[in-house]
C-alpha cells in the first residue's frame, strides 16, 4: 500500500537525527541522475501523489542577482541573490505580504522587477501553481476539470490515461465524479495541483501548496516532491514539510532582507539565531521600508 510506504518513509525520518536529515536532503542533489532514471520513476508512479516529470533538466536552473521590487512607495525587497542548483528544493518562508508570491510572478514574467536580473536556464520548463484556486469550475467533476473530457491526456512529452493521472492526486474511484463545488479546501488544493502540473514541468513554483492539507496528504506531497526529477521552489509555512524536503531556504527576514541558506528549515533557524541573537525568538510586526 502506497500509504504505508509513505508512513514508513516519514517514520524513518522521525527516527533520524538532524545531521542525518541534512545529509539525506543534500544527497538528493548528488542522486539527481538516479531520480531521472526510468526505473526510479516507475517505482514511484504508484505513490499517492505522483508529479509527472518534465523534460530532463540541465545544469543551469534559475539565477537571480540584485533583484529589487517596489510597490507604491514601499520597498518590497532589494538585493535578492540566489542560484537554484539542479535538483534542489528551495523552501521559501517569511511573513505574509513581504513579496514571496511577487517573486514567483517575476520568475514567470508576469511582473517586472524594478532592478536586477533573472536568468532561467534553456532546458527549464516552469510549472507554476499559484494560490488562487478560484479558476476551478464548480459545475464540472474532478475528472472533467483535469481531463477536459479526454480519455488520454498529454503530460509534457508522453500520453497517459486521464483517469489514471487524476488518480495520482489521490482522487480514487468515485472521488473523480465529485463536483468541484462540493470539494473541501484540501481537495481543491489537490485538484489545482493536478490541473496545473499536467503541462509537465521540470522546475515547479508552488505557492503555499500545504495550506488546508491533512497530514496524510502533506506526507504524500512530500514523497511526491522527493521523487520529482527536477527542482522546486515552494512557499510554505509548514516547518515539518520544509524540513523533510528542502535542500535550501530562501527567507524573507523581519528586517526586510532576503537570505538564501543551504540546508533545511531547522538548520536555517539555528543559523538565524546565531546571527540575530536572543531577539530572534519572537517574530515582529511587518514594517515595510518606505522609499525616500
Amino acid at each position: 500500500m502506497s500509504n504505508q510506504k509513505a508512513i514508513k518513509a516519514e517514520l524513518e525520518w522521525v527516527r533520524s537525527n538532524p545531521k542525518g536529515r541534512q545529509a539525506k536532503n543534500k544527497a538528493r542533489l548528488q542522486r539527481f541522475d538516479e531520480l531521472n532514471s526510468q526505473e526510479f520513476q516507475s517505482r514511484n508512479e504508484t505513490n499517492e501523489i505522483y508529479i509527472p516529470p518534465g523534460a530532463r533538466l540541465g545544469d543551469k536552473v534559475i539565477e537571480v542577482a540584485g533583484l529589487r521590487k517596489t510597490f507604491g512607495d514601499r520597498l518590497l525587497f532589494d538585493e535578492v541573490n540566489f542560484v537554484v542548483p539542479k535538483g534542489s528544493i528551495v523552501g521559501i518562508i517569511g511573513a505574509n505580504g513581504m513579496g514571496k508570491s511577487t517573486l514567483f510572478r517575476i520568475l514567470m514574467d508576469l511582473e517586472t522587477p524594478d532592478g536586477g536580473n533573472v536568468v532561467v536556464g534553456d532546458t527549464v520548463e516552469l510549472g507554476y501553481v499559484d494560490q488562487s484556486r478560484d479558476d476551478l469550475d464548480g459545475s464540472k467533476t474532478v475528472w472533467e476539470e483535469v481531463s477536459d473530457g479526454l480519455d488520454i491526456i498529454r503530460i509534457g512529452s508522453y500520453e497517459v490515461a486521464s483517469r489514471s493521472y487524476v488518480g495520482r492526486f489521490n482522487f480514487k474511484g468515485s472521488d473523480q465524479q465529485k463536483f468541484v463545488k462540493d470539494l473541501s479546501g484540501g481537495e481543491r488544493n489537490r485538484l489545482h495541483l493536478a490541473k496545473l502540473l499536467k503541462q509537465g514541468a521540470n522546475v515547479l513554483l508552488l505557492d503555499e501548496p500545504t495550506n488546508d492539507l491533512d497530514v496524510e496528504t502533506l506526507r504524500a506531497l512530500e514523497e511526491a516532491l522527493l521523487a520529482f526529477p527536477g527542482s522546486a521552489l515552494v512557499i510554505s509555512h509548514d516547518r515539518w514539510f520544509l524540513d523533510r524536503i528542502a535542500t535550501h531556504i530562501l527567507a524573507y527576514e523581519d528586517d526586510g532582507s532576503v537570505v538564501f541558506h543551504e540546508g533545511n528549515y531547522t538548520d536555517y533557524e539555528v543559523d538565524r539565531r546565531q546571527r540575530q541573537g536572543a531577539d530572534a525568538a519572537v517574530p515582529s510586526r511587518v514594517k515595510h521600508r518606505r522609499l525616500k
Binding site: 505574509n96 488546508d212 510554505s236 509555512h237 509548514d238 516547518r239 533557524e269 517574530p283
Partner: peptide, 12 residues
Amino acid sequence: PTNHLDAESVAW
C-alpha cells in the same frame, strides 16, 4: 490555529 500564520509565528 496555525492557518495563516507563518513559520516563525507558528513556532512562537
